[in-house]
Design a protein around this nucleic acid. Structure first.
Lengths: 126, 126
DNA sequence: TACGGTGTATTACTCAATATAATACACTGG
DNA sequence: CCAGTGTATTATATTGAGTAATACACCGTA
């Protein structure tokens, strides 16, 4: 689950892929609060990407409260992935609707969908 | 749930918003199989959008088997939203993972998520 | 038959977002 | 001091999205 090992796929912006991978790594427990988060130049080198692109992802990551930066030192995974603002439930609804839409398109029934949800839920540690 | 009444929001490509709205309208039962699907020029006029943009969405819609085109006549909602190819489960997994990620970020528990899923599921007719 | 509406295709242009490139500065720890 | 860090700036190239203007073949109907 190393952040460096993500393989960039075309179709989605690179900085969004990094952003998503970082969220996943942190929320799944692969990166724990207090852990050092890879430096901008380090990620850029490993992914053979321009540092500015990584910087863009990191800026968003800090805005979400997932990571904090210590100038001169480096980045660190935050303690609390953040007390959430009021705008977030809308994003959950989007994800929910998109999921149900896909499931309906696949002619999946509710029990099967529930099972799949349970399965994915368990892939994250508490 | 008229397809014309969708209000285009910035951030996402227009043709994707049309594509999504059409999927939702069809899968939710608002547009039934055999129903006429709005013409390219009609949608373009109502949405004050370039016909080419609508055409792009329609092409994707036909590729998914949601709609069929009868040259000289118009478009029609397909009978079967399609026997699905093998590539689709991956898209379901994406939606599932995105949902769980959002839920974890909101510090939501599984029962609450299940309830929310149930709620969204019921918004679609069978 | 003529006409209007339909799907479809082509070419060209503008514009914003993305990504890269090359620097530069202030800070920290060893 | 020095290497590594976060951060900021300016410039450029590339890509995708959207618009624009046509054009063609097809269908139903008057």
């Amino acid at each position: 689950m190393n952040l460096f090992t993500i393989d960039l796929k075309p179709g989605a912006p690179i900085y969004e892929q990094i952003l998503y991978a970082a969220r996943k790594a942190i929320l799944s427990g692969a990166l724990k609060p207090g852990d050092a988060f890879p430096s901008v130049r380090e990620i850029a080198a490993q992914l053979r990407i321009n540092p500015n692109t990584v910087q863009k992802a990191l800026t968003a990551l800090k805005a979400e409260g997932m990571v904090e930066s210590l100038p001169g030192i480096g980045n660190r995974v935050c303690d609390r992935p953040e007390p959430d603002d009021a705008a977030r439930p809308a994003q959950l609804d989007e994800a929910l609707e998109a999921l149900v839409l896909r499931a309906r398109q696949l002619r999946l029934d509710l029990p099967s969908l529930r099972a799949a949800l349970q399965d994915h839920w368990n892939r994250f540690n508490d």
